[in-house]
Simulated assay, not measured.
Amino acid sequence: MTAGQRHILVVAHTGRQDSLEAAVAACAQLTAAGATPVLPADQWDDLHAFAPDLNGTAKVLGKGVSAQELELVVVLGGDGTILRAAELVRGASAPLLGVNLGHVGFLAESERDDLSEAVARGLNRDYLVEERMTLSVRVKVAAEVIYETWALNEATVEKASRERMLEVVIEVDGRPLSTFGCDGVVMSTPTGSTAYSFSAGGPIVWPTLDALLLVPLSAHALFARPLVVGSDSSLAVEVLARTDGSGVLWCDSRRTYDLPPGARVVVRRSTVPVRLARLHPGPFTDRLVNKFQLPVTGWRGPVGRD
């Protein structure tokens, strides 16, 4: 790599026309500014077919450019695309700058109309970096760890077949809390509190709070409330051997693992955060209002000091 050369990864949802167009526009803007656009290997063919000129200007991640050499990741799509980008650069220092082409897009920083401005500010390093906690996820059978992964939003233990429920024990800090049949259990970060956890009836937790969430899915129990614990705690879900159904682990709806009877899924705070590039730092309350289009008409604000 040439000294001083700037490599910026562009991640897009290549199954969408507007995302392909946005990726080509972003690559052209990066090239014009003297930076080198980098593309994920599995998106190269789609983007090259859409814009053959990229062959002479863009590079492929993992082929001459590593994740550790990236300065910034420009992500074009919804939250699912941002989760994919976070997976691509896991452990590297490059922050993710999301431009929302999806629907709600809680993780994205700008909207489609602001693409050019967002890329320009990324090139000028005109952003703040916000670190979001992630989850370390282990699957154990007895004392053996049989699978390890991570999650930014959530790790979910779910039933594998529609007609069968799971029998589980939920555990906090190595102690059993309750046993019940259910469709599953969501273990979430504050970032994920506006994703699957929210859909399951969990609380919205401000992303600056260090905490872990546990939300049962359709539990057959009197005590099956959402739980919020400290970030130093551990959460676990054990799939009881007596359960009629089988279980499956999903992390961020991207990484999956089949759970044998007796498996325990243990979740803790990971030491590796995800870094987000923020162009418009402001109250999370305002982001909630804007993303969910919450009614605030008639609010006059505080008078004097609260």
Rank of each mutant, 00 (worst) to 15 (best):
281 P>F: 12
181 G>V: 10
268 R>G: 04
124 N>F: 11
11 V>I: 07
298 G>H: 10
163 E>R: 15
156 T>Q: 09
58 A>W: 05
193 S>V: 06
115 L>N: 02
282 G>M: 06
201 G>Q: 06
139 V>P: 00
269 R>L: 07
261 P>S: 11
47 L>R: 02
146 I>E: 12
183 D>P: 03
133 M>D: 06
55 N>M: 12
162 R>M: 11
104 V>L: 14
21 E>K: 12
252 D>Q: 02
208 T>M: 10
207 P>E: 02
34 G>M: 11
193 S>E: 07
173 D>L: 10
45 D>T: 13
132 R>Y: 11
82 I>Y: 04
240 L>Q: 15
240 L>V: 13
81 T>I: 12
93 S>G: 10
203 P>R: 05
195 A>R: 01
146 I>G: 03
137 V>W: 02
93 S>R: 14
210 D>I: 03
129 V>E: 08
113 D>G: 07
292 F>M: 12
67 A>E: 13
84 R>G: 08
198 F>S: 00
45 D>R: 11
120 A>Q: 15
272 V>C: 08
107 L>I: 13
247 G>K: 00
6 R>Y: 07
5 Q>H: 09
301 G>P: 06
126 D>R: 00
133 M>G: 05
175 R>C: 09
299 W>D: 12
30 L>K: 02
171 E>M: 12
79 D>L: 03
10 V>Y: 07
285 T>K: 05
292 F>G: 01
18 D>I: 13
44 W>P: 00
121 R>I: 06
70 L>N: 01
36 T>C: 10
232 D>H: 14
236 A>M: 08
47 L>P: 00
60 V>K: 14
194 T>H: 01
266 V>R: 06
99 V>C: 05
188 S>Y: 02
93 S>V: 12
182 C>L: 10
180 F>S: 03
100 N>K: 08
289 V>H: 05
106 F>W: 09
214 L>M: 14
18 D>M: 10
